[in-house]
Amino acid sequence: MLDAVNDDYTHWVTVPTRWKDNDVYGHVNNVVHYSLMDTAINEWMIRTAGFDPVTSDVIGLCVESHCSYKAEVAFPEPISLGLRIGKLGRSSVRWEVGLYRSDGTLIAEGYFIHVFVGREDRRPIPVPEQIRAEMEKLVIE
């Protein structure tokens, strides 16, 4: 597994690509990269930080995202995603994600910036303490 050779990231998840992920050019379409990054982040939030996206009074809204493409990947190659936090603010977080092929080749690097807000009023509020405590484990120096 990649985490044994790449310690740039503190959390890893591997996802299969699907037949429909390939585009007419024969590789995984760029929109899939964003979807996988979003999935890795939310999988961590739910499983590790205890976030409940359906009932929580606090939600994280994406206010900025970016992806730099480095190499192609195609179905049926699985993609391993490394997750870390580049910056943890009072009410915001910058998630950084690396996408890798099984041979260790970097496919893409990206980030999402989430601002935590009240579900009803959409006003920024501090990251909830339970979530913050887990996020601090992902912060890179």
Rank of each mutant, 00 (worst) to 15 (best):
K87S: 08
G89N: 08
E129R: 13
A71T: 05
G82Q: 03
F116I: 03
Y69K: 00
D121K: 07
A74W: 01
T55E: 11
C67Y: 05
G82C: 06
V97P: 01
I59R: 07
V117P: 00
S68G: 09
P124D: 13
V54Q: 14
G50E: 07
I107K: 03
G86H: 08
V58T: 13
A133W: 11
R119N: 01
S56I: 10
G110N: 06
H66W: 09
K70C: 09
P76R: 03
V127Y: 10
A108T: 02
C62I: 15
I59E: 07
S56D: 11
F112C: 14
G82N: 00
V127Q: 09
S91G: 05
V127L: 12
I85N: 02
S56E: 06
I113Y: 11
L99M: 11
V58A: 14
I79D: 04
K87A: 11
V63N: 02
K87R: 11
G60K: 06
D121Q: 08
L61C: 09
I59W: 08
R101Y: 01
I113G: 09
S91N: 06
G110E: 07
S92N: 03
P126H: 12
F112G: 12
E129D: 13
S102M: 14
D121A: 05
R123F: 11
P128E: 11
I125C: 15
F51A: 08
S56M: 10
L83T: 06
G98R: 02
L88M: 04
S91L: 04
V63Q: 03
E129W: 12
S102A: 15
E72H: 04
L81G: 02
G89Q: 08
E134G: 12
V97D: 00
P128K: 13
E64C: 11
G89T: 08
R94Q: 14
A71D: 04
P126E: 11
V58Q: 09
S91C: 05
G50A: 09
I113V: 15
V93I: 13
Y69Q: 00
E96Q: 11
Q130S: 14
E129H: 12
Y100L: 03
S91H: 04
L61M: 13
V54F: 13
L83D: 00
M45F: 15
I85V: 12
H114K: 05
A71W: 04
M45I: 11
Y100D: 00
P128L: 13
D103L: 10
L61N: 06
D121G: 05
M135N: 10
G118Y: 04
G104C: 09
M45V: 10
L81R: 01
D52Y: 03
A133R: 14
R123V: 14
R119C: 04
L106F: 04
M135R: 13
V58D: 08
V97R: 01
L88E: 00
W95K: 07
E72K: 03
G60C: 07
T48W: 13
A74S: 04
M45D: 07
S91Q: 04
Y100C: 02
